[in-house]
Design a protein around this nucleic acid. Sequence first.
DNA 1: ACATTCAATGACAGCGTTGTCATCATCTTT
DNA 2: AAAGATGATGACAACGCTGTCATTGAATGT
Lengths: 341, 341
Amino acid sequence: MSATIKSVAEYAGVSIKTVSRVINNEGTVKADTLVKVQHAIEALNYKPNKAARDLAGRDNYVLGYVYDNPNAYYILAMQNGILDECRAGGYELLIHPCDASSQSIIDELLGMVQSARLAGLILSPPLSEMPDILGALDDKGIMYVRVLSGEQAAGTKHPCVLVNDFRAAFEITEHLIRQGHRDIAFIAGEQQHNSTTERQRGYLSALETYGIDVHPEYMLQGTYSFGTGVECIKELLARSDKPTAVFACNDEIAAGALFGARMEGIDVPSQLAIAGFENSPFSRQTFPPLTTASQPTAQIAQQATSSLIQSLQSRRRGGDKQVAASHVFVPELVVRESTSR
Amino acid sequence: MSATIKSVAEYAGVSIKTVSRVINNEGTVKADTLVKVQHAIEALNYKPNKAARDLAGRDNYVLGYVYDNPNAYYILAMQNGILDECRAGGYELLIHPCDASSQSIIDELLGMVQSARLAGLILSPPLSEMPDILGALDDKGIMYVRVLSGEQAAGTKHPCVLVNDFRAAFEITEHLIRQGHRDIAFIAGEQQHNSTTERQRGYLSALETYGIDVHPEYMLQGTYSFGTGVECIKELLARSDKPTAVFACNDEIAAGALFGARMEGIDVPSQLAIAGFENSPFSRQTFPPLTTASQPTAQIAQQATSSLIQSLQSRRRGGDKQVAASHVFVPELVVRESTSR
DNA sequence: ACATTCAATGACAGCGTTGTCATCATCTTT
DNA sequence: AAAGATGATGACAACGCTGTCATTGAATGT
């Protein structure tokens, strides 16, 4: 049927082990041998058999994506990005939704890694920000890559991909200020997500930069849900000193706030400006559409996955324990009608 | 580390081949031997090694989920249902988004099945309704299960799971009629989806049952998108004989219609009733929330997957070519405020 | 020139299953 | 009772790769 390592070896006139060295980038192959083998691989359109590699090697060519996040759009975008890179690198993906607040979450993850002999994990918030989990993985020598909120790499030996929520939140707040708003409320999601506190920091920093006093009563906190938006906006609009703008921690909260405002008979944007975060599809499907910040989730996922695969390869090659690279993405401001004057 | 077929065989005092027969349900094992082996498996907590099975067997323990559908909630719900069953049956899942209208779609699928040695495919609309694709798969002897719109099984040798869109659409239309509406518009999505025509049939059948004349100008057609809802509602509201109710083929269209109505200054539900279909999360996140029909997508996916796995097993056992079972689900009417009087 | 080291390569044994074919015990049939 | 058919089981190779260790040839040091 399809080419095997043996046929490639014969074609190139070397042993199968040398071909194995080439496909695994072991780096101990002479330059001209390397070329010969690569030619043979190309000529025969050889693809290593995953089952055989899994069976013979120490761990399987399978990565795990672990998440605890109700946001379907986010998950799907992450997943698609991960899948693209997995396919390119010959890996499979095991998808594992879980409950981060569960007592047994650590055992669950360790058990999963062991029983499926996973090569590595991709962690997105909030799991990527839980020291206990990371510590347990480190102890067992499990490879992983983290996607999380932050501005610069915390020097670990594991790669990570950062999303600069601080900066983006600053820009959204700045946008509202430039529209003339001074009474700007902030509705937060779960505090356990680092992105929540980062976005809050960005909000506060913008207020400070523009010399606007912080109004603690304007800062509310709930969950990343439509319901939180509805409740919080009601609370805000019940005040005698209503805010004129709201920055919600994500689009779902913002959509809820929009809904709530409308129920109270408040028009958006003329009486109240609302901004969200994430640029999820339904930020375009509200009336009016939401100003938000767009993060290239699929691209972030690709970057994370390819970093992980690279670490995996370098470890197999001999384990240079150097600090892994990290990448930073800054979400981009998207202005729509929910904040227009 | 963990138990292998060999350790189970020793423990049970049989050969490894007999253990293999047991775990594959080959059925040629004596009753008491069977019990012995099952005990051994339980005692040692034995799980067959997937890589070894893949390597030794004819095809891999991997199923493929192929889809062409922009609806994140639907896909994720399908996927979760499929994953649950896969895990239970020891299968992996390969996820493959694709473009159903592509010229090379058939080659793409066949190539994928061959190169990943997939055991079978799970097809959702519109792919599950394309005769060319099904024919090509049949020719190659590729196993698959279909999820599609319909009322009863088309007797094929492949299992299928049906969603009775006709019935549910009838009920939605009936609900509108009972609310006193007679001028009910219908906004369709892509005609290539069987569900579109089924829902349309249900709509027409309800009108007929209640002796209401069909008004062809009230029947519009577009895509399953927010934009279609916006455009179609504008067209409908521009008429002198405006409809008093709209049944949109899915929630996304309905949300667009709601949006469009509001832009035209029409209140929902007092001036116009709107119903959607699907019960996707954002049918709850519009103002007012949408009346819709709820289909248990994850459950449908589970049923489909377990049917497929069963077919696979029975084929391995000797290939009784009997007509495969099919299951029917009827989406359930969910009444919310967008149609209240 | 000779011993020593090191880089490059190969031979070969697994990895844990399934498929094929052979074997053996047990029924039927005549 | 002998022959054949049938059912249950086992021995063993094969699947395609990686890990280990041995071997080769060239470079280095003295």
